[in-house]
Design a protein around this nucleic acid. Sequence first.
RNA 1: GCGAUCGUAGCUCAGUUGGUUAGAGCACCGGUUUGUGGUACCGGGGGUCGUGGGUUCAAGUCCCAUCGGUCGCCCCA
Length: 411
Amino acid sequence: MAKIAPPQPVRGTQDMLGETADRFAHVVDRFDAVRRLFGFQRVEVPVIEPTAVFARSLGETTDVVSKEMYSFDDRNGDSITLRPEFTAGIARAYLSNGWQQFAPIKLATHGPLFRYERPQKGRYRQFHQLDAELLGSDSPLSDVELLCFADHLLRDLGIADGVTLQLNTLGDSASRDAWRAALVEHFASHRAALSEDSRARLDKNPLRILDSKEAADRPIADAAPDIDQFLTTEAQDFFAAVTAGLDAAGVRWQRNSRLVRGLDYYRHTAFEFVTDRLGAQGTVLGGGRYDGLIENLGGPPTPAVGWAAGIERLAMLLDAPPPSQLDVTIALEDDALRTDALALLRRLRDAGYNAECIASGSPRKRFDKAAKSGALVLLSLATRDGTKQLNARHDGGERAVAIEAVARTAQ
RNA sequence: GCGAUCGUAGCUCAGUUGGUUAGAGCACCGGUUUGUGGUACCGGGGGUCGUGGGUUCAAGUCCCAUCGGUCGCCCCA
């Protein structure tokens, strides 16, 4: 029979084992602990949503919707999409379940998201995010609360040192529209000098020219008007209240007037925690205020603010975790003593020690393998002169002595 | 969608201007004459050199195509 070729993984997906999986789990564990500290409720939402949930909230013309979504028709012919982000689905759940009754409500979740993109460092087609949302509050204190949560998490993970919080305001819709018009005018007058990419952006997403990486664009982008002169009094006051709150809470931030958001629904506060340690993928956590989103989905006007962070990226920034220390390895040198080994394992594990038993391969090799396992205590179970013998080898430390005592306890 | 770069054993990698039978470490299996020692030593199995064409007396090595990985652009966390 011809051997079939083994299947390949779907491009941009990952299989995680050992340290990689441990790092991932650690990020999620700490997120869950910190979200409790800040009183964010755990929320679970579906991985699949009707395509319209994302098409309406993100904007039909955005790249995410027009070319990056995993969409398919289910058996009824309804268009279904694997979620490319959390916010839209949570907003949908908020409306579906009448969570207005709990507003303002603080929610947190995490899980897989899907975007059809070329994979590169810290970017995958199935990727994973932490997500925090605060719905139903128009107070700048909510923005501050959310940023304090993010800052606390990064400090808890021990990666805050290499990461800076960049902050900007996009203003309310009146401010944003006026600024956008001024930017279009500015960039249009320099159209010929712009890079090819930015000439395309001018029609599709002019704000994005501001953070262009193209050298040719930098002088023009740097000379573009800031939003500040277009901010309404209300928008100015809002941003001032956010920054004052951050200062009071001891969260360090940097104004980045070139920071914009890719998606249409953002208003007012926009922020990114950025590092230079992840190549081109510098944003570790990003978000902002999206007062218009829930209305876009057909709900009542509802202010909201949120952020998301890539778990893979956070995991890559973590210090190397200490190698896991095995407490005991048993070298079972005589298969006739298999039941004794099982009983011994049970006793050790009941006492809270992690224990392994080496019982395969040639009997003579088992001691070798056990010795290489790096366990604190090496136990060997053998038959000598017709009698059962249990030997222990260790460094004489306190824990090791306690382990040997448990091992020698009569059953 | 575009660009760069890399595919050699289960894993990490050597492999010279193209030149005999493609190597190492780790992992796996066996042996080192019943042993309070053995994290050692010796040996063994395992490769269509990603795949398909081409150039050549001769291709892991050069050329073309294709598939896959990585990094970058676009976009975005």
